[in-house]
Design a protein around this nucleic acid. Structure first.
Lengths: 148, 148
DNA sequence: GCTATACATTTGTATATACAACTATTGTAT
DNA sequence: ATACAATAGTTGTATATACAAATGTATAGC
């Protein structure tokens, strides 16, 4: 990925600004690949993220604030995100008996089944995105990212 | 930045997936800082990006497709983005005489003035975001990002 | 028990973005 | 000259997101 080529500038960018733009461009690419990989399964990256969090609960229900806390990209409206997953039959929502303010969200068997298909697509997407990286590269890159 | 802490997971993430999530989290942070830095100047990061592109034209007008090509995050509607900058008095739009399909967009003196104030804010934001990086770190990080 | 406060989620609304259809202008081939 | 395609931008519409206000429930102090 050549920054100057993508944003079509001939002038030399300052290192700091270039780095931040570079990260944006990389993230745009990652996001685009993810969206395309998930498109056949009719979910957005955030919906996929929620499904994975729910699977990680191993049968325990999650409430909305828990989901929101754990999402990679927090969005201000988890209610409506969950609505869409309910419409698709991937999760269900019940009022928590012990605290009726809370709701409990569970992934359905259909959700788990769909999710396992998405996993295959995502795995392939990750492999393609990171094809130029060795394992050591990834460790070093993660170390740099930790500095943020 | 600790990935596991931010997304509140205790389990160990696979290196590939962790890297991609890490980049998302970093980009979210960068974006948040930029939005806050630009908020007092009442522009979005994309509007700021357009203003900088126009300044880089050094008096030559840009048309919409040129802007779109050069934007870091391409969005599907540059017309309306420019509309907002016109409302603010930062740019103006005229029909190109030699090819009346094209429009020419120029930054106004007020736009240049506002932009120079934004520069200060952005510079400070960049410095803060990258405070843990040495120059060599940034070079190495850019090299890794080139692998995408 | 009653009121005030905090909590968890939902709803309303304004703005942003994606995508497709449309308009206007120019270039090209017959 | 006319018809057809290509180009540049605009508009319409559906969906997404941000932010604030509203709803319903639980807890604490008196």
């Amino acid at each position: 990925m050549n920054v100057e080529q993508i944003i079509k500038t001939e002038k030399q960018l300052p290192l700091e600004g270039r780095t931040l733009i570079h990260i944006s461009l990389v993230q745009n690419k990652i996001n685009e690949v993810m969206i395309n990989s998930l498109k056949p399964h009719d979910v957005s990256p955030q919906q996929f993220n929620v499904l994975r969090i729910l699977r990680g609960q191993k049968g325990n229900p999650a409430n909305l604030s828990t989901l929101n806390e754990r999402m990679v990209t927090k969005m201000s409206n988890t209610t409506r995100l969950v609505d869409k997953l309910i419409t698709k039959g991937f999760v269900n929502r019940t009022v928590c008996e012990s605290n009726r303010r809370k709701i409990e969200i569970n992934i359905t068997p259909e959700g788990l089944e769909a999710l396992s298909e998405m996993d295959v697509a995502i795995k392939a997407a990750e492999k393609e995105l990171l094809k130029n990286f060795t394992n050591e590269d990834l460790v070093l890159l993660n170390n740099f990212l930790d500095k943020f």
